[in-house]
Design a protein around this nucleic acid. Structure first.
Lengths: 138, 138
DNA sequence: ATTATTTATTGTAATGATTACAAATTTGAT
DNA sequence: ATCAAATTTGTAATCATTACAATAAATAAT
C-alpha cells in the first residue's frame, strides 16, 4: 500500500488535518471504488497499520462525510457504504447477491426540486434495486 | 384502533394471507404516513394486542415488503422506515432533527435509466438530505 | 527545548436494531 | 375432531455502530 499525495490533497481540500490514519482511509477509498463498509476498510488497512483501531476508522469516516470529502451510501439496510466519488451518480444494489454498482445519470436529474421556503438540501441520492445481470439468469 | 377492511384488501391485493397481526401492521401503516420504524409500530400496536411479539412485526414487515405491499426506506443509517405509500415519491431527511418528509416528484423522474442487458430494476428511491425549515433558522 | 494544552487515536464495553431458532399456537383440510 | 402446514411467540444471538475514558501525539506557550 502506497499512500498517495492525492489523499492528502483531498483532505486538505476539505479542511481536514491529515494524519496517518486519515490519509490511509482516504487513500483506500480513492483507490477502491467498491463502496466498502467501515469493516472492510478496517480489515484492509489493519495489515499495514497494526495499531489501527476500528473506532478510528468509524471516527474518520464520519469526519470525512461531515466535511464532504466522501459520501455515505445507505442503500443497504445492513451497513453503511462509503464512496470517494463525490460527483452525482446513482447506485444499484442487487437484491439477490447484494452487489453494488454505480449508475451514471444526467447531472440535471437529481438536484431539480422546488425550494420550499427555508428547506436546505445538501445531498441527493438515487438508489435503484433489482436483480443484476448474473442473478437474473436464474 | 379500528381495523379497517382496506388493510385486508391491500394484503389480498398482494397475495398475503390476512391474519390479525398482519392486518394490524398493514392498517397501522395505512393510517400513519409517518414512515415509522418497526419499533414504533410494535409499541403502538402492543397496547391493543398485548400478545404481539416484536419478531412478528419484523417478520410481517419483511413479508409485506417482499410482496410489494409496502416499501422500505433506507434513508437513515440507524433503522429502516416503512411506508404504505407505494406511489413514486421522494423523501427528505433533516440531518439536524432527523425528521422525515415526503417530497412529490414528477413520475417520469425516477424510472428513466437505460436498460443494460439483463439488469432488472424493480425499485427506485430518491432521497434528499439537508436541513428542514425549522432547523435552518439556527 | 520543556512544559502545558489541545487534538487524535486506541481499546473496551455498551447500545440497539435485526435475525435465528425452537416451541407454542392457530388455521385449514380431511 | 385430527393431522399437517402455516403463523406467531419469546429468548438468545449477532453484528454494526457508538460511548467513553485512557493513552499518545501534535501544537502552542513559556
Amino acid at each position: 500500500m502506497r499512500i498517495q499525495t492525492n489523499a492528502t490533497d483531498r483532505l486538505r481540500e476539505f479542511n481536514i488535518k491529515p494524519s496517518l490514519q486519515r490519509i490511509a482511509v482516504m487513500n483506500y477509498l480513492l483507490e477502491n471504488y467498491t463502496h466498502p463498509t467501515a469493516d472492510t476498510i478496517f480489515n484492509s488497512l489493519y495489515q499495514y497499520i497494526p495499531t489501527l483501531s476500528k473506532t478510528t476508522v468509524y471516527n474518520t469516516l464520519k469526519l470525512l462525510v461531515k466535511h464532504g470529502a466522501i459520501i455515505e451510501i445507505t442503500i443497504d439496510d445492513k451497513n453503511v457504504r462509503y464512496d470517494a466519488d463525490i460527483r452525482q451518480h446513482a447506485h444499484f444494489k442487487c437484491k439477490s447477491c447484494s452487489c453494488l454498482y454505480d449508475i451514471p445519470i444526467k447531472k440535471s436529474k437529481l438536484m431539480m426540486i422546488k425550494k420550499t421556503g427555508n428547506l436546505e438540501i445538501t445531498e441527493s441520492h438515487l438508489y435503484y434495486k433489482g436483480y443484476c445481470e448474473k442473478c437474473n439468469k436464474n
